[in-house]
Design a protein around this nucleic acid. Structure first.
Lengths: 105, 105
DNA sequence: TCGCTGTATTCCTTGACGGCAATATGCAGC
DNA sequence: GCTGCATATTGCCGTCAAGGAATACAGCGA
């Protein structure tokens, strides 16, 4: 099974989402912006489609791709319980920053 | 380069974070909860450590692992511009749901 | 120093994924 | 129906990461 996290792990796919956040785009447009080959773009779009993150609206032989944010809302929900760790008060963050002396590696 | 998204793409690692959200844990404890082998757990912990998501505090020959939420805050920041798509008003969401008739695949 | 416990690392194999090139499909106009 | 354009799919290859088994390392107690 492919989760939304798996899909987002690919930088090109995040860039696609960023582009679609501005407005719907054609595959050719995305291909140019990303500097990928057209098949490469289509493959990523397929993954995004199957994950429910984008949607294609055919218009003649072209396809307008647009964003579908629901899966991102799920990510947001997963993140929610952690959010208090850096927003509750700044104390928590400061405490963490105080302990940054010795990172391994 | 390994991004936080790559790290979170692994379910076991998300489970580790969930467990550490409750409280710091020992490797053996995590191993038991996850049903993994001990080396498997240590490997995931190493990835999490190098990504800055957890931190080890040695105590004798044991190691307490604890959460470090900063990288999650970055994810949260990436997500921010999208958030309005599902929180602005429910209208946007409803419009999206209205168009869910024909999913491909 | 030795043995034990807890944790980390290494080696190996295997499966999944990205990129590329070639090809197939769908749709419009003539 | 043929041509052409926009997009999708397939096959191949190289890479990389996960999982398992075996082993190494560190710190404590005796």
């Amino acid at each position: 099974m492919t989760t939304t996290f798996d899909v987002l792990a690919e930088p090109a796919r995040r860039r696609i989402l960023d582009l679609l956040l501005e407005r719907p785009r054609l595959v050719g447009e995305l291909t140019e912006q990303l500097g990928l080959t057209q098949p490469g773009t289509s493959k990523h779009l397929r993954v995004l489609r199957e994950a429910g993150l984008v949607r294609a609206r055919p218009e003649a032989q072209r396809r307008w791709y647009e964003l579908r944010p629901e899966p991102l809302a799920e990510i947001d929900a997963w993140l929610a319980p952690y959010r208090r760790l850096w927003t509750d008060s700044l104390d928590a963050l400061e405490r963490h920053l105080d302990t940054m002396e010795d990172d391994e590696e």
